[in-house]
Design a protein around this nucleic acid. Structure first.
Lengths: 214, 214
DNA sequence: AAAGAATGCGAGCGATCACTCGTGTTTGTC
DNA sequence: GACAAACACGAGTGATCGCTCGCATTCTTT
């Protein structure tokens, strides 16, 4: 009935032929509003009306730019994926990883994600929460995969002889540890955060040492 | 109108004056059904009608025994708390903890919780999920507190000189590590689980060693 | 066996929420 | 300035869900 299904039968957007500048701004507003609401409410409890209200628009206008609630989250996840990728790239491109100590390497990986999480409170709502429809989990997966690949690569560089399966498992565990600690960090008062962060890094460092001595 | 509010104004149950044996059985059935549904659906997505259907009763009968959905979850959490406490007690009462090696101690703490999680799939839905109303989080807290206290106590026994705050933080992190890995373990094929479990224990052991060398 | 209590039922109520629709307003284009 | 497209609105729709209510059945007690 509308302009949803276009010539190709695949998942096409309700995109007008020519988006106005006002529309582009609205999209940014909506995504920012969604991030704010998601950060405190979680996905399921976030209502589309609440996002619209937070963005200062009507519920109907929301659907001028997004086909449904999932699409908002997916778009936000894509934005986050790009931001995190850029942050990581910036932390790595200047240095040869082989020259770093294990502790420095951990800092290089952890600090950007940490900063990103603290700067983007909506991020963890989209990744550390299990209350999302399967389609959304799939949308968030590329971020996880990229991170897992990056960490596995670092381990492979440091432990060339080890089996890929072993290092993959180790990398996954290390990421899970970080994710598990993240809520504690964001929930803590800012002055208490460094202690927790130090402790997490100690855990990861100790594990990497154990991996080396194995 | 009914028998809900009794003499005291506090939160009283809709308890009949004399529960029949049939009623006691129903309660067990309902809790078991709720655990099954919760395990696969999570709290929010679990509907009371689904619990009733799983238990083979009508929606109305559900509310013969529980005042609302939250109370079902709270009762289940209480059951789990007792089961876990018993499992831990059984693993500890025969031995003096001071005689165990760190690795053995970790086994003593981890193995019962691990077994309990695998035997009770609904358990983690009630504890590892953030999609619960505040009242329910409060109901699940005693389990966490007990575990945290137990682990902190073990660390204090092993590191008498350390500050309580430091060990508390360490204990919390260790528990988080375990919780972080738990979903992977339950999701994995049974034959893949030992490898993951070994890895988690290695990480915890390495961390305890780091704590000793600090 | 009779009465009262406990149990059982399931249609349906009220609230919530994602999403729509009819209509009005703004913007870009000629 | 005229026309169309994009944007905006917000009451309303249909679906879902927690929970209730009126009534039927079963159990316990006497």
């Amino acid at each position: 009935m509308e302009d949803q299904l276009e010539t190709d039968g695949a998942e096409t957007r309700a995109v007008p032929r020519k988006r106005q500048a006002r529309g582009e701004r609205r999209i940014s507003d909506i995504l920012a509003a969604a991030a704010r609401v998601l950060a405190v409410q979680g996905y399921e409890k976030t209502t589309t009306n609440a996002i619209a209200a937070e963005a200062g628009i009507s519920p109907g206008s929301l659907y001028q730019y997004f086909r449904n609630k999932d699409e908002i989250a997916a778009e936000l996840a894509a934005t986050y994926a790009e931001g995190l990728r850029a942050a990581h790239e910036a932390a790595f491109d200047l240095t040869d990883v082989a020259l770093l100590t294990p502790g420095e390497t951990i800092d290089r990986v952890v600090d950007p994600i940490l900063a990103f999480n603290l700067a983007n409170p909506g991020f963890k709502a989209l990744h550390a929460r299990p209350d999302m429809p399967p389609g959304l989990v799939a949308a968030a997966r590329p971020i996880h995969e990229a991170l897992l690949g990056r960490v596995t690569g670092l381990l492979e560089a440091r432990f060339p002889g080890r089996s890929s399966v072993e290092l993959h498992l180790a990398a996954r565990l290390m990421i899970q540890v970080f994710q598990a600690a993240m809520p504690s960090i964001t929930a803590a008062e800012p002055e208490d955060r460094p202690a927790i962060i130090t402790e997490v890094k100690r855990m990861l460092s100790a594990y990497v040492r154990e991996l080396a001595d194995r």
